[in-house]
Design a protein around this nucleic acid. Structure first.
Lengths: 117, 117
DNA sequence: CGGCATCCCTATTGATACTG
DNA sequence: CAGTATCAATAGGGATGCCG
């Protein structure tokens, strides 16, 4: 089997949390387990397909944990794994800088708006 | 003109530093100004077009500064702007977690290799 | 409700060749 | 050396319908 080669460490990070939806999903899981339906409401614009797909990828990276309850109607919850918790500093800094950046844009007269947080 | 709406702060961050190449470029600019040719050597796999394009986007986000010297042959340097320096904690945490992740993969018997750092 | 499969489209990317 | 233009290939993503 061929060896996976990273030229620089940040590549490995982006491979796991990169992409359009993963950082947003991870932010929304930081305060506890959430059901898929709830995630769809929390993340305007995401489709069923993308949500499921991205969650599966995060699950296979061991970042996210899927819990299925045998109930009717079926219930599923997603939450950060213990390993996923190791990303909290990363997510914090990403969120913090985002807030700084939005403020900077406003100070420069840009018309910007932040709904959550 | 329409207002830009972010649902969550991390979206604003990813809009600026997201994508396949931007985090790698920014990492390589953290220790001072670098010429485009040097960047191409530091970033295996990137094309001329992608490098120029991503640098222009980072420049228009005020993250990166372009300096042109009137010499023959022409010389250009890219470096982090003062505003770009505000990303250093973000980049640090991204790099640090990448190293942790690569080590974790190794500990799990995966065949992984990190060239730089 | 949560997940999967299919079709389809467009935005991103890469290869190549060319200009100042 | 730095940057541009063009075209072709691809991956990412949306809409829909079906299944447990």
């Amino acid at each position: 089997m061929s060896e996976k080669i990273y030229n620089i460490a940040v590549e490995a990070t982006m491979e796991v949390i990169g992409g359009k939806w993963k950082p947003i999903i991870l932010c929304n899981l930081r305060h506890g387990a959430v059901r898929p339906g709830e995630l769809r409401r929390l993340i305007p614009g995401i489709s069923q397909k993308m949500l499921t797909q991205q969650l599966k990828e995060l699950e296979s990276s061991q970042i996210v944990k899927r819990t299925s309850f045998n109930e009717v109607p079926p219930r599923v919850e997603y939450s950060l794994s213990e390993y996923g918790e190791s990303l909290s500093e990363v997510m914090d800094s990403l969120c913090d800088w985002g807030k700084l950046h939005i403020q900077t844009l406003k100070n420069n007269g840009k018309s910007v708006c932040l709904l959550q947080d």
